[in-house]
Simulated assay, not measured.
Amino acid sequence: MTRKINPVLKMLLEYGPIVAFFIGYGRLKDEVYTFGGTEYHGFIVVTAAFIPLLILTTGILWALTGKLSKMQVATVVLVVLFGGLSVWLNDERFFKMKPTMIYLLFAGILGIGLLRGQSWLKLVLEEAVPLQPAGWMLLTKRVALFFFALAVANEAIWRTMSTEAWVSFKTFGLPGAIFLFFMTQGGLFKRYGVEEKPEA
């Protein structure tokens, strides 16, 4: 059973680890630490701390609400996988590829649903955004293309720009882009929105 929690607490649990990563990287980016005879730059150390922090906050969120979205579960799995590879191999590139994999995964899943004539986005957002079937199909197409664009943008930035620029993009650019995208869908929500029927 899903339980509601304080919105501020929910936001802290969801975005706290990302902000902590940004702050930690800002303080440790120029540091080098030696563990077991191997040197690790600040980025790798912060990544190693980010993984258990994300697992902890996601676990607390699940304990408090009784529910996690598929996106939250997939994010934790990919963070553990790619973040773990970065720490294990002492190579920051794996962690930088994580957003690319996440957005390609969701774009691909939504695309498969569209090919089957279904909006799998509706399964996730139906309660929050009631839309007509045609609206769901159009929104799903737009979200799939948007996720694909974010994957391309992440690849372009981490491969051509500095680590500091990528960390800023990941912390502020990606969430900001998602917020702006849904803000621009107001016309679609208005055109295809389903009005709730008043109770008798």
Rank of each mutant, 00 (worst) to 15 (best):
F82V: 00
L61M: 13
F106G: 04
I44S: 03
Q72P: 01
L110Q: 03
Q118T: 10
K70S: 15
T47N: 12
V46A: 05
T75E: 05
L110T: 01
T58R: 10
L61F: 12
V46G: 01
G84K: 06
F94V: 01
V76A: 14
A128S: 15
L68H: 07
I102Q: 06
T58H: 08
T65L: 08
Y40I: 08
Q72H: 06
G42D: 05
T65N: 06
P99A: 08
Q132H: 11
A63W: 11
L115R: 13
P130S: 07
A48P: 02
L81Y: 03
T75S: 15
V46S: 03
L105F: 14
L81E: 05
W120V: 13
T100K: 00
T75V: 11
T47A: 14
L85C: 02
E127S: 14
S69R: 12
E39F: 07
H41K: 14
S69C: 05
L115D: 02
F82K: 02
L131R: 02
Y40G: 03
G59D: 11
G66C: 09
I60W: 07
V46Y: 00
F94I: 01
A107P: 02
A107S: 15
A49G: 10
T100G: 11
G42I: 05
K122Y: 10
L114S: 08
D91F: 00
V124P: 00
L115C: 13
P130V: 09
P52Q: 09
P52R: 11
W120D: 02
F94H: 13
V76C: 10
V77H: 02
L110M: 14
P133W: 06
A74Q: 10
G42H: 07
I55K: 04
K67I: 09
R93E: 11
L121H: 05
A128M: 14
E92N: 05
F43S: 04
G108L: 07
V76K: 04
L123W: 13
Q72F: 01
I55H: 03
V87R: 07
F82H: 09
K98D: 00
V87K: 08
W120G: 07
L64Y: 05
K67A: 11
T58V: 13
I60N: 09
A63K: 14
K67H: 14
L114M: 13
L131A: 07
G117C: 08
V77D: 06
F43P: 01
A107Q: 08
I102C: 01
G59V: 02
Q72S: 12
R116Y: 12
L89S: 08
G59Q: 08
A128G: 05
G84F: 07
G117Q: 06
Y103R: 02
K98I: 00
W120K: 10
A128N: 13
I109V: 15
G83W: 00
E127R: 15
A128Q: 15
L56G: 09
V87F: 07
E92I: 06
V46Q: 04
I112K: 12
L85E: 00
M97P: 00
L54K: 11
F50P: 00
